[in-house]
Design a binder for these strands. Structure first.
Length: 264
DNA sequence: ATGGTAGCGTAGCTA
């Protein structure tokens, strides 16, 4: 089973690039974040025609929005609301073989890394706190599960272009990295792609639109992740980033797809 | 220290 996750930054604007991902990689399951569209306006028809007949979407006007697009049947689908909001950041679905996949778009957190003055950073930390409590109470780590998405945190030193210069930049601050680690430990999640790309190697999934030349400056961050429960570690076949997609024309997303293959 | 770009929706928010 091949699973891809991609912050597409508007599914309507980039529907042709989504079909390129489908044609080039043939994932069995694609999870999207930042679809930025209400469910009634989601462009499902061309995706269904391409074989992604099983879909579970939750979108809102302008912001956020997540989608699971699958060639394989989905069962027991659900939505999870965090921090008392219904803001389309977490959906899940069952897959054949007793697998469950969770697709999450974690709050970005704004600019200032101080929860007392920046409500967005406070929201990000509370979102993490709630998830840290939720997983052990609602799910078992012995269950085969995959958690994917834009977590808006780059946890490792080599998940950012400069660990020293990023310490006070939201996405790499010690407080959010510690909470992400607590979340990982909650069910013993394993960072799937980092089992194939050693922690000593730089690895990014996002490059800012604001750079004059994203590839030349190469100031990226690894914000997008695929985690698996211990029950699935032995099934991992490959894990990689589709870096070429950052240059896809016209109008690339600022995030690239992250992909794993599982022998299930 | 600042500003740089992008998407939605058509001003200003979010990233």
């Amino acid at each position: 089973m091949k699973i891809a996750t991609w912050n597409i930054n508007s599914v309507r604007l980039r529907i042709d690039l989504l079909m390129r991902l489908m044609d080039e990689q043939r994932p069995d399951v694609i999870c999207l974040q930042e679809t930025k569209v209400v469910d009634d306006a989601f462009p499902l028809k061309p995706l269904i025609e391409r074989g992604y007949a099983h879909t579970h979407i939750a979108g809102m006007k302008s912001y956020n929005g997540v989608a699971i697009l699958s060639r394989l049947p989905l069962s027991d689908v659900g939505v999870v609301n965090w921090c008392g909001r219904q803001d389309c950041r977490h959906i899940y679905a069952g897959l054949p073989g007793g697998l469950e996949i969770h697709n999450i778009y974690l709050p970005s957190g704004g600019d200032l890394p101080d929860p007392k003055v920046n409500e967005k950073f406070d929201h990000k930390l509370r979102f993490l706190d709630e998830m840290i409590e939720w997983w052990p109470s609602q799910r078992s780590g012995s269950r085969p599960m995959v958690m994917v998405g834009d977590l808006n945190i780059a946890p490792l030193e080599n998940d950012v272009w400069s660990h020293a210069q990023m310490r006070d930049v939201v996405s790499h601050t010690p407080v959010e990295v510690a909470k992400l680690e607590a979340l990982r430990r909650s069910l013993g999640w394993v960072d799937a792609v980092r089992t194939f790309v050693p922690a000593e190697r730089k690895l990014y999934s996002w490059w800012s639109y604001r750079a004059q030349n994203w590839a030349a400056s190469d100031r990226g961050r690894r914000l997008d992740h695929i985690w698996v429960t211990p029950a699935l570690v032995g099934a991992l076949i490959s894990g990689f980033h589709l870096k070429d997609a950052r240059g896809w024309e016209p109008k690339p997303s600022d995030h690239v797809p992250v992909i794993v293959e599982l022998a299930v």
